[in-house]
Design a protein around this nucleic acid. Structure first.
Lengths: 217, 217
DNA sequence: CCATTTCGGGACCATTCGGTCCTGAATTGG
DNA sequence: CCAATTCAGGACCGAATGGTCCCGAAATGG
């Protein structure tokens, strides 16, 4: 009986034997867990949870079935990891873009117009994995619902920071409730992306964005 | 060989023998096709397309497997009928409520606040079947995509009528583009309902609605 | 070179999937 | 009562589902 030592970054955990040290004997990982996770995320993002089969996941990750189960557990656990990864990645990217933008309102505007400009094909108009998940699962699976809630909160936090910076920059009235505006932006993000899935034209989408932005002033 | 005569209202079709007349010999329908369709619609509405099994549909319709297939065809055809039925029913109900409302803007406000007030449980926060479908299928299945597009158009039409009436009543500036506002309302309907699926509190949802309504003025 | 460890692939599992079809019962008009 | 018709239920189907497990191969530290 030896201290379990998993070399995978994401799933490593430490027992009370861990101070002994983790001797890496045996065959090392032959794949990049991050890349595999990313691949699975892409698959779920494109097709949703139910419609993504294990076959799809094997193809997307490049793993064998046994490797996938050993590394990520069952389908739902893998999905949970993908969702977390997506939210962290996406929220961080938004945060970065906000930081490097000289106008917070400009950041918001560009973000939404970029979404409105999404080309009209299936591969690109796949929505937001987080809100897709909210739509598919709703409040049915607590395991998922919790992650969706915290993911949504992460997005809202970035939006709120953007709103408050825009208020400091004089682009949004200071008396507006930044939390409500942040939720409003999340709502419109979801709504707009969903509308794009109905096949809406680019110019119509841009008109919706313009209308939505008017509420910020 | 006799002229096929289907007593079901939804699926009746006429051959070139139909002028002979449709003699209703044999055992008549033992179920109400409308009620069965409604039941199937409820099931799809609650669980989505993929997650709803034939077993679920049999339970929801009260039909035997053979009856269901004879009456509605396969799962996807049944779903298409349910989606059409939902859009017709829902758009008509909205239209009625608009007609009987003395303020078009009030109609819009009440509609959205009612959504925001949806109790926080799984059964009630199941979103809008149309937008759920857009989310689940996206642009992948042409058969579905077309229906989603026309369903969305039906909703937008009601909203547009409401906006234009509100403009006539002086509640929305006449120079605002009613088509863009209508799409904006559809977008927010979808976004708000999706946000509710993340477990959002009632008061936060109402704050989002208030923000969204501000864009109309 | 060897003992140890974990790799990857696939055989195998029961279950469920959507879907077809057969059969006896039920209900009709004549 | 009979012939005609179509009902409802379930047996049955192949395929695919998510998931487990075994085994030879491979890569390690000593």
């Amino acid at each position: 009986m030896v201290s379990p030592c998993n070399t995978s970054p994401g799933l490593t955990f430490w027992t009370f034997w861990s101070h002994i040290g983790c001797m890496s004997v045996g065959r090392p990982l032959q794949f990049d867990p991050r890349a595999s996770l990313e691949g699975a995320m892409e698959a779920f993002w494109s097709r949703g949870y139910e419609a993504t089969s294990l076959q799809d996941l094997l193809a997307a990750t490049g793993l064998s079935k046994s490797s996938l189960y050993r590394e990520f557990g069952d389908k739902q656990q893998l999905f949970a990891h993908c969702l977390d990864h997506y939210c962290r990645r996406q929220a961080e990217a938004m945060h970065q873009r906000l930081e490097h933008s000289d106008s917070a309102l400009g950041f918001i505007e560009q973000l939404f117009y970029n979404i409105a400009d999404t080309p009209r094909n299936e591969a690109q108009r796949r929505g937001c994995l987080l809100m897709n998940t909210a739509s598919e699962f709703g409040l049915s699976e607590p395991e998922i619902t919790d992650r969706v809630a915290s993911g949504k909160a992460a997005f809202a936090r970035v939006f709120r920071a953007a709103v408050e910076r825009a208020q400091g920059e004089g682009d949004i009235p200071a008396e507006r409730n930044s939390k409500a505006l942040a939720d409003y932006l999340v709502s419109n993000m979801s709504g707009l992306r969903n509308l794009l899935k109905t096949g809406m034209e680019r110019r119509d989408a841009r008109a919706v964005v313009a209308t939505m932005l008017a509420a910020l002033r």
